[in-house]
Amino acid sequence: MKKLHKLANPGKFYRLSEKILPWSNLLAISLCGLGLYLGLFVAPPDYQQGETVRIIYVHVPAATLASLVYAIMAITSAISFIWKNPLGSFIAKAAAPIGAAFTIIAIITGALWGKPTWGTWWIWDARLTSVLILFFLYLGYIGVWQIFEDQNKAAKAAAIIALVGAINLPIIKFSVDWWNTLHQGASIIRLDGPSIHSDILIPLIFMWLGFISYLISVLIIRIQSEITLQKIRAIQIMISEQK
């Protein structure tokens, strides 16, 4: 617990993150490189979909991380709300644009996958609609930080959006089980094990780990940026008080 408290100190976090960054960069490049090589050159086509199945290697990592980043945002917002810790809201604020990017990637690559397989770019089924709502939640969250001049108020309002919006996460995950949708059911996290053949699953896992490493790298850079921004504000306040 004491260690956790140390980590919650922005200065300590900054120094630790400096050490992680080169490794996450290296992992992101090598895992994505390996995943792309396996996915594009080694993996077989699907027995039904043919070559379009390769879109899975960008669509699924982006879509799962779109939800994961929101979960991170909700948890860190809750921590910062309960413990009044500024680092939590820095992390949430830094994560939002990354989550929004993953969500739009999931939506666009999904459309590009849906057209040749389903026969449509878009359909208002429960899965697609709940993911679109996720995208709007990210935009709303990012917008709130811009609207409020007072950063403490912004942090509170943004935390409320992050927490209320988190209810959407189980809806996204279970939409394909609770309602009938055009989007197919889960292929990886299933009670009876994955329904993806290992030749297709293994490149997907590499891509997924690569996306996770990318997330860690960009998140670190953005959190560092937030911490610096906070220091800038502190100096500005100091100067204006001395004047």
């Binding site: 077989p44 086509p45 699907d46 027995y47 039904q48 979909q49 199945v53 899975i56 397989t117 389903w118 026969g119 449509t120 359909i123 055009l182 197919q184 059911g185 889960a186 292929s187 299933r190 329904s195 993806i196 053949h197 030749d199 297709i200 699953l201």
Partner: peptide
């Protein structure tokens, strides 16, 4: 609209 199942297999 064609719905596809959750199985992904090499042909």
């Amino acid at each position: 609209f064609a719905k596809h199942d959750e199985n992904y297999l090499p042909p």
